[in-house]
Design a protein around this nucleic acid. Structure first.
Lengths: 245, 245
DNA sequence: TAGTGGTCTAGACCACTAA
DNA sequence: TAGTGGTCTAGACCACTAC
């Protein structure tokens, strides 16, 4: 099979990254078939004019992504497909867009409010301290999918209604130079209240999917606390996860 | 602060792993406080009599776990806590046990059945082919929490009712030498049917949390397909996730 | 026994950050 | 400018697997 692999040493892109991208592309388009062996690291390094650690680094990044499996004494094999996208800290906006759904956002409220006890605890601010409160309705094809209520610390990023209606909150945060690091999530279900029924255009007492999430940046500072309710009839969480070895 | 670090070269435990364990323990018990710098890699390597790549490997594993953050030109810092346990392929049994809930299992059915179209597609077998079907009720303190229905390929592992009532399915699979690799999950909500109401002791039409999951081993072979329903009043999914850099 | 990945070393140069 | 992490090399020995 041999496979066309090469690296460009004049490129600013790291060599291991060039290699891992080419291998991933080969797996994606089926040039490297599931179950096939990759050939040993030494030979691969020699063929590309790279050192073994560099080749290992490229392979390791694909192992971490779940695309390859290494077995001592055996070799490196392509996993039998199935793995597409491991769980990410995803934005509903991006998820819907990726599904070709053309998400729309209607900002219901965008104000400063004193933090409730729950919000204060999540964001690590004093109770009653001023925080941003954003309420949004997310729709596709004019139909509501979810009601999103978020609280954010003040002074973190500009939150004008216009930008909130044009894109997702996470994109705004990244654009403002915030490096998202981790999030704590809780997913549950409950019956809708009368108010929620109306907002989401569901019959009385309909089951709702709920999510609460606190997101942290890479300094460990809470940057967002969200309470979301999804129409169970129109949305479910889909994700893939890897077993950490 | 300096910190007591040392490695045992006569141990079969890899040096990078010894170091990462000690660093993790130091973070856990607070000897390394959030936000504090770790000291540069060269100096750390010299102090321990290790090479820099080995020290980097130790640090990298903790970065992957979300405990440390590296910034070029700045240094390596301990993340401001909050990160405890990233999302794993978890078993409800283990989750309940970890929460001190003493889970019990009641096996409702444990039979061989012909695969339905849905099950056949998930497990990659022919429709109508024989597969295991296991129905269980999971309880804590005598109260039902979830109804679990799983399908498995035949010949994979022995599934006696006795063992199923003593522990979780994933533990049985691991004990049978199956290396779990990844899973595809879908989490949603819906109103309970009359049959489910009765099984889970909920009022008519109560909201239920649902999960469907297909689990794969490290060869990419599907090893389990589960359809679970949880009492929303008694259970929610809690997890932490990291942004992949 | 032969071949694989797992670990480890002792250097090197570069890119980025902060003062 | 000084110090940090990011990348890379060319070797070495070991543990495990399959034959």
């Amino acid at each position: 099979m041999s496979l066309q692999l090469s690296v460009d040493r004049s490129s600013p892109v790291p060599l291991y990254f060039q290699l891992s991208q080419q291998l991933e592309a080969a797996i994606e388009r089926g040039s490297l078939t599931p179950g096939s062996l990759l050939g040993n690291e030494i030979e691969l390094a020699g063929r590309l004019g790279l050192s073994r650690p560099t080749v290992r680094q490229a392979i390791q990044s694909l192992v971490d992504k779940g695309l390859l499996v290494r077995r001592r004494g055996v070799g490196t094999q392509v996993v039998h497909s199935q793995v597409k996208r491991p769980l990410e800290l995803s934005s509903l906006y991006d998820d819907l867009e990726a599904a070709g759904q053309k998400p729309e956002t209607r900002v219901l409220a965008n104000t400063l409010v004193p933090a409730s006890a729950e919000v204060a605890a999540a964001l690590g601010v004093g109770e009653g301290e001023e925080v941003h409160r954003v309420e949004r309705l997310r729709l596709t094809h004019g139909d509501p999918v979810a009601y999103l209520c978020n609280h954010l610390p003040t002074g973190l990023l500009p939150l004008d209604t216009e930008r909130l209606e044009a894109t997702g909150l996470y994109r705004l945060m990244r654009a403002a130079g915030i490096t998202l690091h981790s999030a704590r999530q809780s997913v549950g279900a409950r019956a809708a209240t009368a108010e929620e029924d109306e907002r989401l255009a569901e019959p009385a007492g309909a089951p709702l999917l709920t999510m609460q999430r606190t997101t942290f940046d890479d300094t460990g500072r809470p940057v967002e606390f969200g309470s979301h309710t999804y129409r169970a009839s129109r949305y479910s969480f889909e994700f893939q996860l890897l077993v950490r070895p």
